[in-house]
C-alpha cells in the first residue's frame, strides 16, 4: 500500500507538484513487488499463483462492488485495490484454502478500507487487517506451512487449497516449520544464506530477503517511499536483539536471524511504509519505525507466538495520528512548529 498518491492532500504547504500520480506510484509498487512475486511462484509453484490471483481478484471485486453499492464511480482503476490484494496475498501461507483467501480479500477492502471511508482514510493497513482477522478466525490453517521448493509444485495443486468453501481443509501431512517457529519451539537456527535467498518455509512472499530489499531500493530511488521507516525498524530490531542475545542467547536469536526471518523484511519495506498509515514528518517516521522494531522483538521473544510483525505494524498504525499531533511540521517560511502561530 505504498501507492497512495495522497501527497498533495496530507502534506503541509508548500505544495509542489512532483509529477507522481496515483497510477504512476501504483505501477512502480507493482514493479517493486514483481521480483518477490516471481520468486514466490518459483518457490511454491501453482499454489502461489492461485493464492495471489484469488487475493488480488477478491480485493478488486470487493472494491468494485462496494463502489456500485455506494453509487459512486468505480475506483478499481486507481490500482490501490490491486496492491492491497497483492500485498495481502504475499503475507499468506502458501497452502491456505482459497476460500479463506477470498474471505480475507473481502475483509481487507470492506472492513480494512471502505468502512473507514475508503482510500486515504484507513488508519490500519488493509492487507494486515485481513491477515489479522484470518489469523484469529482460522489459527490452524494460518500456521500450517507448506514446504518450499516441493517436487511437484508446478504439476499439482495441494489439496488444502481446494477445500470446499467454509469447510475445513484436509490436514496437511507435509507441513514444515518456519525459521521462527523452529527457533521458538525447537531452538533450531536457520542458516543465514537460506534466509537471505529465501529457501525456507514461510508466507508466500516473505521468504527471500534479497529480492524484497531490491524492491524497496527501487522505490526509495524513485522517491516513492520514506526510507527512514524501514531503516529505523532494521536498526531497532538489530540493536535490541543484539543486546538481548548477549544477555540470554537461549531466548533471543542474534540480530542477523531476527532481521532476516519471518515477515520483518516484507512488513518493514512494503507495509510499514504505507503512506496512509505512516506519520507525516520525518521525525515521526523514525519514531514509527522504532515503535515497530521494539514491538516485533518483544512479541517474538516474550510472546506466545513466534512471529509479531503483523501485530507490531497494526499497533504502530494506531499510534500514527497521535505522533502527527505531537510532532507538527514547521510552517513554511517561519521558524516555529505548526502549533505556535
Amino acid at each position: 500500500m505504498t501507492a497512495l498518491g495522497k501527497t498533495l492532500e496530507i502534506r503541509s504547504s508548500p505544495h509542489i507538484l512532483s509529477g507522481n500520480r496515483v497510477d504512476t506510484i501504483m505501477w512502480n509498487v507493482v514493479l517493486a513487488l514483481l521480483p518477490v512475486s516471481g520468486f514466490a511462484v518459483y518457490a511454491f509453484g501453482i499454489a502461489a499463483v492461485l493464492v495471489l490471483a484469488v487475493a488480488v481478484g477478491s480485493c478488486v471485486l470487493t472494491e468494485h462492488l462496494l463502489c456500485r453499492v455506494a453509487g459512486k464511480p468505480t475506483t478499481v482503476a486507481d490500482g490501490s485495490a490491486v496492491i492491497t490484494g497483492l500485498l495481502y496475498g504475499l503475507t499468506l501461507p502458501p497452502g491456505l484454502a482459497l476460500w479463506m483467501v477470498a474471505v480475507g480479500g473481502v475483509v481487507a477492502i470492506a472492513v480494512g478500507k471502505a468502512l473507514f471511508g475508503g482510500l486515504g482514510q484507513n488508519p490500519f493497513n488493509p492487507a494486515l487487517v485481513a491477515r489479522a482477522i484470518l489469523q484469529a478466525a482460522f489459527p490452524v490453517a494460518m500456521t500450517t506451512w507448506a514446504p518450499i521448493l516441493a517436487a511437484g509444485r508446478f504439476t499439482s495443486v495441494p489439496a488444502s487449497l481446494l477445500a470446499w468453501p467454509f469447510s475445513a481443509p484436509a490436514p496437511d501431512a507435509t507441513s514444515t516449520a518456519t525459521p521462527l517457529s523452529a527457533w521458538k519451539f525447537d531452538h533450531r537456527l536457520t542458516e543465514t544464506p537460506d534466509l537471505l535467498l529465501g529457501t525456507t518455509a514461510g508466507s508466500v512472499g516473505e521468504t527471500c530477503a534479497v529480492l524484497i530489499l531490491l524492491g524497496g531500493a527501487w522505490l526509495i530511488a524513485r522517491r516513492m517511499m520514506n526510507w527512514r521507516i524501514p531503516a529505523a525498524i532494521f536498526a531497532t530490531v538489530a540493536a535490541l536483539s543484539a543486546v538481548l542475545h548477549a544477555f540470554d542467547p537461549a531466548r533471543c536469536a542474534g540480530p542477523e536471524f531476527m532481521l532476516l526471518s519471518g515477515g520483518l523484511m516484507l512488513g518493514a519495506v512494503f507495509m510499514a511504509t504505507d503512506m496512509v498509515g505512516s506519520p507525516m514528518t520525518h521525525l515521526g517516521c523514525v519514531i514509527h519505525g522504532v515503535v515497530i522494531g521494539v514491538l516485533v522483538v518483544v512479541i517474538r521473544v516474550y510472546g506466545g507466538m513466534p512471529e509479531g510483525v503483523m501485530y507490531a505494524i497494526l499497533l504502530a498504525n494506531a499510534l500514527v495520528p497521535h505522533l502527527d499531533r505531537l510532532i507538527q511540521p514547521r510552517v513554511y517560511g517561519t521558524k516555529g512548529r505548526g502549533r505556535k502561530p
Binding site: 484454502a97 484469529a136 478466525a137 482460522f138 490453517a141 467454509f166 469447510s167 475445513a168 481443509p169
Partner: peptide
C-alpha cells in the same frame, strides 16, 4: 447444525 467438516471461525468465539 452445519455439515460435517465445517470450518469454525474461531475469532467469533473469542
Amino acid at each position: 447444525l452445519l455439515w460435517d467438516g465445517y470450518q469454525g471461525w474461531v475469532v467469533m468465539i473469542l
